[in-house]
Design a protein around this nucleic acid. Structure first.
Length: 881
RNA sequence: GGGAGCUUAGCUCAGCUGGUUCAGAGCACCUGCCUUACAAGCAGGGGGUCACUGGUUCGAAUCCAGUAGUUCCCA
């Protein structure tokens, strides 16, 4: 058979993905098995795959494939999120390119465009996930704006409203003047910005005195309604109860006193603009100040500003400074670093703004969600995030759930009049008419008389139901799916959305199922480049995942991602790691090629070295299975992979295969062949969750398989014990072999030239003679001989107190040998001294556990034996010289 | 300003309830090999006062306190 020496993934990956799909291996329906469920964190419907998705979904696929092979009924539910702000922004941009303004369209027309866009681009990302090998049940693909999910959202809103938890109110919100919508606190990103601090003096009314304040936003003075000083600040006592004139517009405003003012900052006097600063707003409420809103929704100044009407806020800032200077109000300007809030979605500077919004009361709802995370009913992996979580939940604020957008779930509130409370909340307009009639007594009210709220709900208000709504558990709370699959097992997501999403899902879970949505949350790190910069489109430092998979194969990229992804730590992605992943594929491929090239001779007896190697590898592999299981239980997927990687590369390829490998063009015995194939088969099982494609390919090539058989649905071996003693013995003979190889290299002896190894045991040290034939084979020896007297002219070494000699006539440099041994003797003496010191310390012998003391005693006798052996050898060598 | 975390080899990180699995892994590096499975490879090898200072202890990378640097979250 002629198999190429390089594995070619391109021809393999699509073939097996189709095979899996055709056979319905990804599908799941409730049955009597234990379920294992993951719901995907739904990516934005119009998004494209980035490195964060790659990491996230690789992890999910590893978990789900492993669970499936462990005999669980594994279900991974895929889907997408409508992402109102992001998607609407894209649609607006696209329309703008076509010369269409959103304001020219009706809501219905705009939504038509948005749906078209969604259908065109939606699902691209899901197709990309298939390339990665994601074993989702695609028949269950959900979208947050599917009918069932939308109805669930509306039903929940109505329910929460009826429970008195949803309310409408005027609040200071984070206004995005570009998207023209309020955004939640969590969607505001604070960044340090170099700006200026302007010192402005306000004339005291009726006097020739001035109060100087400092501000970074001079344009907002037009909305000032007070100046505030600290009550105990003596500099200002004389002004208490007086008024100052706002510069330029000369509006008299009161000087108020409040301990809120930081006397040390700026001048110790603070201008108060309740409409445009959250702290000022609070003070305004406390002191009954007027609130003057000087901005339009798009960030330009309105009539209330009196000056610079129609100018953008940043232009107004530039323009007002010279005006203030001319009027004699500008005292000085300083450079200043301050934190400014930016919109996560549009990057516009957030404007604090008073507006009428819908809110959800969070305090009460949050109680079980906090409790069940703190007591580990819901486990955060890694647990360090519990602190952060608690901090947030203990300080949770009401959630502003309305957005001034069209793309999303429209708020089901229907107004029948102009009053602030002239509305009803209902799941449908028919229901709303009924309620409105009831509420008003006006039996003549009809659907046409009602006007639905224009706003839509925050996207997270639908995704917080995701683990329930994908199983239709809101509308049909007792259906078979939700009863079987919920709560789900693991959620894999980024810590950045711990509060946006994870916390709220937990809240919704307890509110609507009286049960957690998932057992564990695996928080992945952020994918960064090797300079620790976050990977982003704007920096251009993110590789295209699809290109990466083309270059290094899906398996290679999966392995590359996992190599650098300890849970909760950011990962520094490096293309070198995907290369390592690809190289690993190749290694597996070549091991397969080797085995496949063997010819079997059933007449042949199994050689001793093969029998020994088989026994040993069986133990070594069982050990690895047990360790992998342990790592998975700790969600240390990266470490689990490393165990498999080393098992395959070092133990299996470098030690085991080299031991059983027949000489060139010689056949192998049937028993060794059979065992080797069986080992390979098990290794493929172990590897499959990480590298599904190459393992499936080889699994089909290595033995005859029936139609419809697949590695992905075959059972994962689960040994529960292994021969620890044997593994320890093999570790010792590996050292022996390495020593011999090293001597060979030092002395430049070609591999063909057989060396003789002599062994001397004393003081009870054990030489593992049953493993001798492995030593002979791998160290390429001509023979092994047990001796009493050390031979003349030999290089020697010690492994675990057994002395080994390689006689090398004419090649031994006696002086060098002596030097080497004396160095080792020195070290061992020092070591012995430190142990003796410990043993002669009575407090150690008394306080330390007996086991520890016993170990120390053993070390002492070992070292003593070693010293004795070295001393006699050195003496002998010296006598010769 | 408040809170949390991190600091171990050139890089990325393991080291759980203090004691030979204690100074480890992978990559990178150095040396020699195109040895018929694999140069995307094989064999051999060199790297670290465990940030600093003090404390607890018979014993500290590990526990405690402080210092410095660094990252993140919240305001």
């Amino acid at each position: 058979m002629n198999i190429p020496s390089k594995y070619d993934p391109a021809s393999v990956e699509d073939k097996w993905y189709s095979y899996w799909m055709e056979n319905g291996f990804f599908r799941s329906t409730p049955d009597t098995r234990e379920p294992y469920t993951i719901v995907i964190p739904p990516p934005n419907v119009t998004g494209v795959l980035h490195m964060g998705h790659m990491l996230n979904n690789t992890l999910q696929d590893v978990l789900i494939r492993r669970a499936r092979m462990q005999g669980k009924n594994a279900l991974w539910v895929p889907g997408t999120d409508h992402a109102s702000i992001a998607t609407e922004a894209r649609v607006v941009n696209k329309l703008a390119e076509e010369g269409i303004k959103k304001t020219d369209l009706t809501r219905e027309q705009f939504l038509e465009h948005a749906w078209k866009w969604t259908h065109k681009h939606g699902g691209i990302i899901l197709e990309q996930l298939k390339k990665l090998g994601a074993s989702c049940d695609w028949d269950r693909t959900c979208f947050t704006m599917d009918e069932a999910l939308s109805e669930s959202v509306i039903q929940v809103f109505v329910d929460l409203f009826n429970k008195g938890l949803v309310y409408r109110g005027v609040r200071m919100v984070n206004w995005d003047p570009q998207a023209l919508t309020a955004v939640s606190d969590e969607e505001v990103i604070h960044k340090e910005v170099a700006s200026k601090l302007y010192y402005l003096r306000y004339k005291v009314e009726g006097e020739e005195e001035y109060i100087t304040i400092a501000t970074t936003r001079p344009e907002t003075i037009l909305g000032d309604t007070a100046v505030c000083v600290h009550p105990e600040d003596e500099r200002f006592t004389k002004f208490h109860g007086k008024k100052v004139l706002v510069p330029l517009i000369k509006r008299p405003v009161p000087i108020i006193v409040d301990a809120y003012v930081d006397r040390e900052f700026g001048t110790g006097a603070l201008k108060i603009t309740p409409a445009h600063d959250i702290n000022d707003y609070e003070l305004g409420l406390k002191h009954n100040l007027e609130s003057i809103d000087i901005f339009n929704d798009n960030g330009t100044l309105n009539e209330a500003a009196l000056l610079l009407v129609g100018e953008d806020r940043f232009k107004a800032r530039k323009l007002i400074v010279p005006m203030l200077e001319e009027a004699g109000n500008l005292v000085k300007t300083e450079d200043y670093m301050n934190k400014v809030g930016f919109s996560e979605r549009t990057d516009a500077v957030i404007e604090p703004k008073l507006s009428l919004q819908w809110f959800l009361k969070m305090k009460e709802l949050g109680v079980p969600a906090l409790e069940h995370v703190m007591n580990d009913d819901v486990q955060l992996q890694p647990a360090k995030f519990k602190n952060t979580y608690r901090h947030w939940m203990e300080n949770v604020k009401d959630w502003c759930i309305s957005r001034q957008l069209w793309w999303g779930h429209r708020i089901p509130a229907y107004f029948y009049g102009e009053g602030p409370n002239d509305y009803v909340v209902a799941v449908s307009i028919e229901e709303a008419v009924k309620l409105a009639v009831e509420k008003t007594g006006k039996t003549s009210l009809q659907a046409a008389d009602l006007r639905q709220d224009e706003d839509v709900l925050d996207t997270w208000f639908s995704s917080w139901l995701w683990p329930i709504s994908v199983f239709d558990g809101i509308r049909n709370p007792d259906n078979e799916d939700i009863n079987y699959y919920y709560p789900t097992n693991d959620l894999v997501t980024a810590p950045e959305i711990l509060f946006f999403w994870v916390a709220r899902m937990i809240i919704a879970g307890y509110e609507y199922r009286n049960e957690k949505p998932f057992n564990s949350v695996y928080l992945t790190g952020i994918v960064r480049d090797h300079q620790r910069r976050k990977m982003s489109k704007s920096l251009g430092n993110s590789p295209d995942p699809i290109e990466l998979m083309k270059k290094y194969s899906a398996d290679g990229v999966r392995v590359g991602m996992l190599f650098c992804s300890p849970a909760g730590n950011d990962l520094l992605f490096d293309e070198g790691l995907t290369e390592q992943g690809r190289n690993f594929s190749n290694k597996i491929w070549n091991a397969f090629r080797l085995i496949k090239s063997w010819e079997v001779d059933s007449q042949l007896e199994q050689p001793a070295h093969s029998a020994e190697a088989v026994q040993w590898f069986e133990a070594q592999m069982a050990k690895a299975f047990i360790e992998v299981e342990d790592q998975f239980n700790k969600y240390r997927v990266s470490d689990a992979l490393m165990i498999v990687y080393k098992l395959f590369w070092d133990e299996f390829s470098s030690w085991y295969l080299e031991s059983v490998k027949p000489a060139y063009q010689k056949p192998i015995d049937a028993l060794s062949y059979k065992r080797t194939i069986a080992f390979f088969d098990q290794l493929l099982h172990m590897l499959h969750p990480f590298m599904p494609f190459i393992t499936e390919e080889i699994w089909h090539l290595i033995s005859d398989r029936a139609k419809g058989e697949s590695l992905m649905i075959s059972a994962m071996p689960a040994p529960d014990h292994y021969n620890k003693v044997l593994i320890g013995q093999v570790e010792a003979i590996k050292e022996v072999i390495t020593h011999v190889r090293s001597i060979r290299k030092d002395k430049n002896i070609p591999p063909r030239e057989g060396l003789k190894l002599m062994v001397r045991t004393s003081s009870g040290a054990a030489y593992h003679s049953h493993l001798e034939s492995v030593i002979i084979k791998l160290a390429m020896l001509s023979g092994v001989e047990m001796i009493q007297e050390e031979p003349a002219s030999a290089v020697s070494f010690m492994v675990r107190n057994v002395e080994y000699f390689v006689p090398l006539e004419g090649l031994v440099n006696t002086a060098e040998e002596i030097e080497k041994m004396e160095a080792e003797l020195d070290y061992t003496r020092g070591f012995l001294l430190s142990v003796q010191k410990k043993m002669s310390n009575e407090r150690f012998v008394q306080h330390a556990p007996a086991q520890v003391v016993e170990k120390e005693r053993q070390k002492m006798t070992d070292a003593e034996g070693k010293i004795a052996a070295l001393e006699t050898q050195i003496a002998k060598l010296k006598a010769q010289a």
